[in-house]
């Protein structure tokens, strides 16, 4: 007695930013042949998720 659920409730936006938006930004960069370090795109995703967490909403 799971009480994982606290982590998800508090950090889901950060994880979502890192994994989802990081992967999407990286895929777009590959598509347009931008030769930047992939870690940069994951950092952008992490930043987006962190801002969303601080503000409590994506918009």
């Amino acid at each position: 007695e799971n009480a994982i659920s606290n982590h998800i409730a508090n950090w889901n936006m950060v994880w979502f930013g890192l994994i989802f938006w990081g992967s999407v930004f990286n895929a777009i960069a590959i598509n347009y042949e931008l030769t930047l370090n992939p870690m940069l795109w994951y950092a952008c995703g992490l930043l987006l998720g962190s801002i969303a967490k601080i503000r409590g909403t994506w918009l």
Binding site: I19, F20, S23, V24
Partner: peptide, 23 residues
């Protein structure tokens, strides 16, 4: 949470498809 986990797995394998077919 299961849906969210599936989406995060799919986005690693098929990023643009996960974005434009589901998200």
């Amino acid at each position: 949470l299961m849906y969210r986990a599936i989406l995060l797995v799919l986005v690693v394998m098929f990023p643009l498809e996960a974005l434009l077919l589901w998200w």
